[in-house]
């Protein structure tokens, strides 16, 4: 349904060019939940913004294609993008307040969006609004509809934002760290909700997060990004339980989850490379514990190898 091909995005700053995304390839099928995991600076959010055409002015899409049902989104005019954004592809951000109008009752906001997308009467919109609130498991929709965003808790706000995003309803929901600002118990509820929307309404979800645990709960497929590149991708269970790339392996090792408290965690030494002076070879080479001579000069491409899922590493090719 959505396919990203050879995407390169650069940022122009006065200190030079930052290669934020390099050679990004992936696709999302109907009804699929795809997770993009990565740490800060990996380019996971930039990827989402590029799909939605929401990049800042200093960003430059150097090459690549993003096709949505046959249309190249990058070639569309602003107006055409706007008809797709919100209606076909919707987004949920980390901070729900940014997506809500602060001085409008949430019910009104939701009805307005429903009316815009579905061409229905005011009365019908109101009814649909209550249904939508019910769909995101808000138990007293009539009451909540009359509240202002500031009167609601973080979890409730995020539910409203999801209801807004689902109003059209879209084909694809892009969720950028939607649960990071929430408590774990609330996060759990929101994840359940998104899973249910995916199953019941068939909406595909592109789920962007730094949390491997979250990915394991909700995503069918997982893409791991590092320094603006996809370094591993495949079925979630394969990527997380039989990771092939040393970075993915190290990331899982570094989690304190279920580790023996008497043994030090296996931290990844060093820092993410400066994207202005991207290393010639593999971006992870300087931190990799399995680094070989070839890694320093030749960047490995993402490839299918030995019946495994896709991975960008020289190690896997023997």
């Amino acid at each position: 349904m959505l396919e990203v091909k050879d995407l390169h995005v650069n940022f122009q700053t006065f200190r030079g060019t930052i290669e934020a995304l390099k050679n990004i390839n992936f696709s999302i099928a109907e009804k699929e939940v795809v997770g993009i995991v990565g740490e800060s600076g990996s380019g996971k959010s930039i990827t989402a913004l590029t799909i939605l055409g929401l990049l800042e002015k200093n960003a430059d899409i150097a090459s690549g294609e993003i096709t949505y049902r046959g249309d190249n989104l990058l070639a569309l005019s602003k107006k055409e993008i706007q008809t797709i954004r919100g209606k076909k592809i919707a987004m949920v951000f980390q901070e729900p307040m940014t997506a809500l109008h602060p001085t409008m009752k949430v019910g009104e906001q939701l009805s307005e969006v429903i009316r815009r997308h579905r061409n229905v009467s005011r009365k019908e919109a109101k009814r649909l609004m209550l249904v939508a609130l019910n769909d995101v498991h808000i138990h007293q929709p009539e009451y909540v509809a009359k509240q202002y965003p500031f009167e609601l808790s973080g979890g409730m706000r995020q539910r409203i934002v999801i209801a807004l995003a689902m109003a059209a309803p879209p084909d694809l929901l892009i969720a950028d760290e939607p649960t990071t600002a929430l408590d774990v118990t609330i996060q759990h509820e929101i994840l359940q909700l998104m899973k249910e929307l995916n199953e019941k309404k068939g909406t595909s979800i592109l789920f962007i997060t730094h949390d491997l645990g979250v990915v394991s709960q909700i995503c069918n497929r997982t893409i791991v990004m590092y320094a603006g590149e996809v370094i591993e991708s495949g079925e979630t269970k394969d990527v997380l339980y039989t990771p092939q790339h040393p970075y993915t392996k190290a990331l899982i090792e570094a989690l304190p989850d279920g580790k023996n408290a008497n043994v030090p965690l296996k931290a990844i030494q060093g820092e993410v490379p400066n994207l202005m002076e991207r290393p010639i070879g593999c971006a992870f080479a300087s931190r990799c514990s399995h680094v070989m001579e070839t890694c320093k000069t030749n960047p490995p491409a993402l490839a299918h190898w030995q019946n495994q899922h896709d991975v960008a590493c020289w190690l896997e090719r023997g």
């Binding site: 740490e39 730094h210 491997l212 990331l251 304190p256 030090p264 965690l265 931290a267 820092e271």
Partner: peptide
């Protein structure tokens, strides 16, 4: 902090 850095800091605090 990011996960990979979190591990470094947690180790340091323990030591």
């Amino acid at each position: 902090l990011d996960v990979s850095v979190q591990a470094q800091v947690l180790n340091l605090l323990k030591e």
